[in-house]
Each structure stands twice: as structure tokens, then as C-alpha cells.
Design a protein around this nucleic acid. Structure first.
Lengths: 198, 198
DNA sequence: TAATACTCTTGACATCTGTCAAGACGAATG
DNA sequence: CATTCGTCTTGACAGATGTCAAGAGTATTA
């Protein structure tokens, strides 16, 4: 089972035999049915998990409304980066959208690995850089674009998610209401002008 | 001069004597007058700089309009993270808003340090985590809040920037037009209701 | 000093998006 | 099968924000 976690790390940086042994020793699997909450509001995020099967999303509550911050499918790391980084209670909630399997490491274990195997910091750095890169890209997506432009960009870049995620969640990810998304989509899949009328 | 860069790194993680020597050997200073562009659109970001004096902002052009992504003052690292990470041409432009002094390291030097001094990855990771943390916070600020709420949050958290940065740039940072920001501010610094009229 | 450029403000109006309400449709459940 | 629930759509309307235009005030420069 920890094979995939080791493989994921190997993509990012060198993994020594010792380190691999440590990972295999410490990694543990978690399984969730769809619709379960992995990280509750107010909890401190004390682990980092790799999604091996399924799909999750993270979101926070703003003014009573859910704001989706990320979708994390197979091969992605699931964690609330802010809470993990600060080790403070999270505002970000993480839930499963499908039946999901995770392979996880506890935070103290990771800290210990950073100390015992300095090269593991390469992996940590690469991973954070990648997550940051995704976050910046999304921020740029959300800014200065109209609702329609945001959706079509998202659809182009995430064709798979379109069928796996409900419109409600995509809308909240894209910073618009469900109704606006619905209108945007119906406009998009329809002729641009009235020529087709006659 | 590289003292401040070494000190900055020491805040984030251990710096060995060897590593310090390398930093002192490789670091170089750059000075810019206010209003100069440090990183042009389409350039690849090949260095990382610490602001020791002055103020910079990064922005990109969207649909002809500038969208400010960050302000970086004294003690902050200046770089286009996406371009630096991908080593591809940047969409993000970086300019100085005041006369600015930077201490910089070239990208290949940093890569070499990551290899030669594995512990330096701790510093890299911490730095990226922090930048990521700021980026996430800003994203949350921009989402689900009205123009007025965005400004008052920004004003609370960045009192200094209010006087150092023009309203035009703050508006584009907060995702609104200059006119909207102006109206928001005039409403804010005025009695909330009509009671004061009589 | 006059001329110019720049920043910020204000007004009028258009447009986008959110809100509230209702309904169609399909999936899940008893 | 009937019912219920959740998802998505559609309409009417209101409010927030953008756009265009103009003007006041200040700093900069010749």
C-alpha cells in the first residue's frame, strides 16, 4: 500500500532506502465513503495524505455560504496547507465527494523525517511549490475574468471534474452562485446570436 | 551587504558556515529607482531577491487591465513564484514603487545549494510555505467579501501600505476599480446613517 | 508662474451577478 | 408505485460594481 506514497515522493526528489523503510513503517491507510468529512472545522491538520482513489474537496464557510478552495483527486496530496503550516485550527473543511482511499503520514513523523533525512526537505519543498503554483493559477483564474470566462477556463483545464463534481460545487469553486453558473452554461452551449432563429 | 540575506535565511532554518560563505560569495546587490521594472513580461525569472529597502509590486495584465498580485516591502522575497518554479516566461511583471535595494541570488546558485547543502531545502520550503500561506490568505480575502469588506480587511492588516501605495494599485490588488474603491472609502469615513443630518 | 500630468473623487448609467421563488427532472427510498 | 430528496434550470427583480465622463486638487516640470 505505501508503494504509491513512496512513488509519489520519488517523483519529487530522491528517497533513500532508509527513508523508504521509515515511510513504509509509518504510513497508514484511511478509507472513507462519499460525503464524509476528513478534516472538521476547528481541527488542527496533523497529517498529510495522498489520494489513491476517489475525490475530495476543501472548502470554508463564509457568511453562511460554502466557498470551495480545491478539488483533490487521485495522485494529489490532501491537506489544509494553512492549518498544516501554522499548526492552528483550520477554517478549511475537507470532505470526500466519492468513496476515497488515502495513504497518510502524521505531521510529527514528517517533521522527524525532515530532521533525520535532510534530503527529504527537497520533496517537501517541491510539493509545497507545486501546491502553491496551483493556488496562484486559480487565483489568477478568479481575478479579472467574468463568470463565463472563469467557467470555460475551468472546463478546458479540468474536463474530468466536470462530470465528477456537482455544478453547485464548481460554482462555489469559481466564485459564483449555482444559478449564475447554470445561466452561463446554457448561454455557452447555445448559438451566440439570433441568426439561428428563423 | 549579504548580512541581511543570511539573517533572513537564519530565520527560516539552519545555515552552516560553509553555506554562509557560499551566500556571501554569490549574493549581489541591485538598486532601482522608483517606477522601474525588475521583471519584464515574457522574461524567465532566474533569481530570488530580498528587499532591503523600498517597495515593489507584482502584477499581470488581464484584458488590458493591470491586476496586482502582491506588494513586497522590506524583508520580503521578490520573485515571480510561478515563473521561478516552472522556469518559463512570466506573465507576472514586477516593478518598484519606491527607490529599492535588493540582495539577490541567481537560480542556478540556489539549485546548487539545494544539492550541496540539503538542509537548505528547509529554508526553501519554509519560504515557499510562507508565500503560499500569504497567497491563500489573500485568496480567501478576495472571495465572498464585498468591495467594502475587502478594503477594510486590507486596511486593518496593512496600515503601512495605505500610505505608501496609490489607491489605483490597492484597488487592482483588491479586485475592484479605482472608482469603486474611492466610493467605498468615502462611505467608510462618513457616518453610517442619516442621524447626524439634523 | 504657467503648463502639464497624475491622483483621487463624483455623477449618471449600464451591466453583471446575487437573491428569492418556482418548477422540471432524475435518483434514491420506503 | 408513490414519495422524497437533490440537482439543475428558469424567471423576475434588486443591488453591487464597472464604465464613461468630467472635475478638483496636488505635485512636477519647463
Amino acid at each position: 500500500m505505501p508503494d504509491q506514497l513512496v512513488a509519489k515522493f520519488r517523483e519529487l526528489g530522491p528517497v533513500s532506502a532508509e527513508m523508504e523503510a521509515k515511510i513504509r513503517e509509518e504510513a497508514f491507510t484511511e478509507e472513507y465513503k462519499a460525503g464524509k468529512i476528513i478534516l472538521h472545522q476547528g481541527e488542527v491538520c496533523r497529517k498529510i495524505c495522498l489520494v489513491t482513489k476517489g475525490l475530495t474537496r476543501s472548502y470554508y464557510i463564509n457568511d453562511g455560504k460554502e466557498v470551495t478552495s480545491r478539488f483533490m483527486g487521485e495522485g494529489f496530496i490532501v491537506t489544509s496547507w494553512i492549518s498544516y503550516y501554522t499548526q492552528k485550527p483550520t477554517a478549511e473543511i475537507i470532505e470526500t465527494l466519492e468513496d476515497t482511499t488515502l495513504i497518510c503520514l502524521h505531521e510529527p513523523v514528517i517533521q522527524k523525517m525532515y530532521q533525520d533525512f535532510p534530503a527529504s526537505n527537497i520533496i517537501g519543498r517541491e510539493q509545497v511549490e507545486y501546491a502553491f503554483f496551483l493556488s496562484e493559477k486559480r487565483t489568477q483564474l478568479l481575478r479579472g475574468l467574468t463568470a463565463g470566462e472563469r467557467f470555460s477556463t475551468f472546463a478546458d483545464e479540468n474536463p474530468t471534474l466536470l462530470t465528477r463534481v456537482s455544478m453547485k460545487h464548481i460554482a462555489s469553486y469559481l466564485g459564483m452562485t449555482e444559478e449564475t453558473l447554470s445561466r452561463v452554461r446554457s448561454k455557452m452551449y447555445r448559438p451566440k446570436n439570433g441568426i439561428a432563429n428563423s
